[in-house]
């Protein structure tokens, strides 16, 4: 009876310790990543290809998402503002929302699926096929070889992709406004500039950078800790995407609370 009653608590306890252990091990990997930065000779060569994979290859999907977000934002804003609020507020809404929220977050989420999953699957496969062990036996520090270039590439390229996505979203909003909403370009731009402060851009870049770091390091973490063959790789990949998506949303709220 006591055991029966205790079961949910035991499950809760196990859950929390597993979470705490995971966070701790992720923290250790992050610490190792920072230490591994000193092996410049190892990771520097690998940074550029990773930047191409993380950044350049993600540009189309990010632009695609941002374009439709911009269109929908403009249409929905005009729908909401019908008659009551001057239409140039469409520009305010598109600009602010793209910069502060949707640009960084949607790009982050899209890239957590694309980049985070890719990293977790790749490193997971390398783990279960002993390629990571092989790296060590060839005297390569695996964190410097595998984690550092991916994390750095994500830190550098997430803001880049996000900036392009924001530009695309605003452009799409503008195009929608003047084509479908009977607004003039000047009205839209007036709205766009009305409440703009340079900090909006800084805020977006801070968010994107932190998302990049989290997505890459979480992907690396789940890849590195993969166990048990192909099934394990699939498991790691799923968890990397789920966890990094959740972390993005939590971080998003965190930045909104601390920086705004």
């Amino acid at each position: 009876m006591i055991r029966l009653l205790g079961a949910p608590f035991a499950a809760l306890g196990r859950g929390s310790t597993t979470l705490a252990e995971g966070v701790g091990r992720w923290g250790m990997l992050t610490g190792q990543t920072i230490q591994a930065l000193r092996h410049v000779d190892v990771w520097l060569r690998l940074l550029l290809p990773q930047m191409a994979r993380v950044g350049v290859d993600s540009v189309p999907i990010a632009l695609f998402i941002a374009m439709f977000t911009g269109i929908v934002l403009a249409l929905q804003a005009s729908y909401t503002f019908t008659g009551a609020i001057p239409l140039y507020f469409v520009g305010v809404l598109v600009g602010k929302t793209m910069m502060l929220e949707l640009g960084p977050v949607l790009t982050g989420l899209a890239l957590s699926g694309r980049v985070g999953a890719n990293i977790a699957a790749e490193l997971g496969t390398m783990r279960v096929t002993e390629q990571i062990d092989a790296l060590e036996t060839l005297a390569y520090p695996p964190v410097a070889y595998l984690v550092v270039p991916r994390v750095l590439a994500a830190i550098i390229m997430f803001p880049v992709v996000t900036a392009l996505a924001i530009g695309m979203g605003i452009f799409a909003g503008w195009a929608t406004s003047i084509q479908l909403l009977d607004m003039t370009s000047a009205e839209f731009i007036n709205g766009l500039t009305l409440f703009f402060v340079p900090f909006d851009v800084t805020f977006a870049m801070i968010k994107a950078t932190s998302f990049g770091f989290m997505v890459a390091s979480i992907g690396c973490f789940f890849g590195f800790t993969t166990e048990g063959g192909a099934e394990g790789v699939g498991h790691s990949t799923t968890r990397a995407v789920v966890v990094s998506s959740m972390v993005i949303l939590v971080l998003d709220a965190f930045w909104a609370v601390t920086l705004l």
Partner: peptide
């Protein structure tokens, strides 16, 4: 350890070549 590993060759069961 890295210095030691230079003197040791390791042949993995499934080769563990970098894909």
């Amino acid at each position: 350890l890295f210095k030691l590993r230079r003197r040791v060759g390791y042949v993995f069961q499934f080769a563990a070549l970098f894909d």
